[in-house]
């Protein structure tokens, strides 16, 4: 199957196979007017299988959210047909309003308009905990 290369835009490479729709939704790519391609289960020497998302327009991506969702993603910025920058992600120290605390005893369940903030407590295991009640992100 062939999907054309993009002239100017963003390519999210090395997405964990099967995770591209989750990323598509988190980044609200459905709201874009430009062409967006989701390519699933591509053969990869590094990962075995991977997903790729190609966005045919320049856009500001929330790299923290992306890093939280999948720190192995490579972000390729393309302009006039040339790769101008390759960004490698890492797990962000903190994420705000990306996930919600599911602990029914947490103050975030009752306080209005409070930010849901999770902090990385174990880099090796990728564990995030709510800063208020310390429950693990699920």
């Amino acid at each position: 199957m062939n999907v054309d290369g993009i002239t100017t835009g963003v390519v999210l490479d090395h997405i964990q196979a099967g995770k591209s729709m989750e990323i598509y939704n988190y980044l609200h790519l459905d709201e874009l007017d430009c062409c967006v391609a989701i390519i699933k289960n591509v053969k990869s020497t590094k990962l075995g299988r991977k997903d790729i998302i190609k966005i045919d327009a320049e856009m500001d991506l929330d790299l923290e959210v992306l890093g939280y969702l999948d720190p192995n993603i490579t972000v390729n910025l393309v302009k006039d047909g040339k790769l101008i920058e390759k960004k490698h992600l890492k797990l962000p120290r903190e994420v705000k309003n990306v996930i919600k605390c599911k602990n029914p005893r947490c103050v975030t369940t009752v306080e209005r308009e409070v930010d849901h903030i999770f902090r990385l407590t174990s880099e090796e295991k990728g564990i995030y905990r709510c800063i208020y009640c310390e429950s693990e992100a699920k």
């Binding site: 005893r105 306080e111 208020y132």
Partner: peptide
């Protein structure tokens, strides 16, 4: 003192 966890931090 508060019954909800994290209320004092908030």
């Amino acid at each position: 003192r508060h019954p909800k966890e994290g209320a004092p931090l908030l």
